[in-house]
């Protein structure tokens, strides 16, 4: 950790002890969410999502492929995330870092475990299914990529249209069928600093945090969780945060569904 970050971190931690955040938000207040849909016309679905100053774009491409041998009557959903070097001085070119892989897998797991996309509706004919590729590009980083990437991916999937497939040909000009969405999930990512816990960390808060937990829900039940960083949570804390995440779902999905 660089010297300036150590100082910033110490300031953030001491202010939190008095219940103050460096951008004067409440403990469990999310930054403003802004979503623009259908921002790209070549992709089958797209959305740009901003959470405060964090800015990501998700594009969906749908291709016709052979199904997996263990699920011959289901299509595929593949979510990946890329930390573009333009998004932060700390992101570098080259193969994906463990943090980028974790991000993509956690977002993917939430949407998959939430049964958000009806994979059976992606079956075309024997040996042919639609594969839905969701690629999330991080354009500008100011913390909490887990939550904003889930928002962008969900929003892009909800305006995704399937290209027509007939006689072995994919016709991308005819995209009249909408992708069937069965469930909408949102995640809430909390950070822990000593005994203080907050929601939706910005970049400065993130670099000072001891522990992180992402809880993905559909408002009724928990669909996925991931604890991160080398700090720890008590069992009681996890249970309290699950409650908050379940309650936050309607606020966040309210933006996604609009």
């Amino acid at each position: 950790m660089s010297g300036i970050n150590t100082l910033k971190g110490a300031y953030i931690r001491s202010a939190l002890k008095e219940g103050k955040r460096n951008d004067s938000r409440e403990q469990f207040q999310m930054r403003e969410i802004e979503i623009n849909r259908e921002v790209l016309s070549n992709a089958e679905g797209s959305a740009r999502a901003r959470l405060g100053n964090t800015d990501v774009i998700a594009g969906v491409k749908v291709v016709v492929e052979e199904p997996h041998s263990d699920t011959p009557e289901e299509g595929n959903l593949i979510v990946s995330a890329e930390l573009l070097p333009m998004a932060s001085a700390d992101f570098e070119t080259g193969p994906p870092s463990p943090a980028a892989i974790e991000l993509a897998r956690v977002v993917d797991r939430g949407i998959r475990a939430g049964s958000c996309v009806d994979l059976q509706s992606l079956f075309i004919e024997k040996g042919k299914v639609y594969s839905v590729y969701v690629d999330i590009y991080v354009l500008d980083y100011d913390g909490n990529l887990f939550d904003v990437c889930t928002i962008a991916a969900m929003s892009a999937l909800m305006n995704t249209r399937l290209p027509k497939y007939s006689d072995g040909e994919v016709d991308r000009k005819d995209r009249s069928a909408k992708l069937k969405i069965d469930n909408v999930v949102s995640s809430a990512t909390f950070g822990k600093f000593g005994g203080d816990i907050i929601l939706d960390m910005n970049a400065d808060e993130e670099q000072a945090a001891d522990a992180r937990i992402t809880i993905t829900t559909d408002g009724k039940v928990v669909r996925a969780m991931q604890k991160g960083l080398n700090g720890d949570f008590s069992i009681k804390e996890v249970e309290q945060l699950v409650d908050i995440a379940l309650k936050k779902n309607s606020e966040i999905t309210g933006h996604i569904k609009r």
């Binding site: 475990a113 039940v221 928990v222 669909r223 996925a224 991931q226 720890d232 008590s234 069992i235 249970e239």
Partner: peptide
């Protein structure tokens, strides 16, 4: 952790209610 039950790794996927998660923790401990 053995001594004070601190959660050091937690992942989950599927569907679980908060009550089920709590029962899971009890069983794990």
């Amino acid at each position: 952790s053995h001594r004070d039950d601190r959660i050091l790794l937690l992942q989950m996927d599927g569907d679980m209610s908060n009550e089920e998660i709590g029962r899971g923790f009890d069983m794990a401990v």
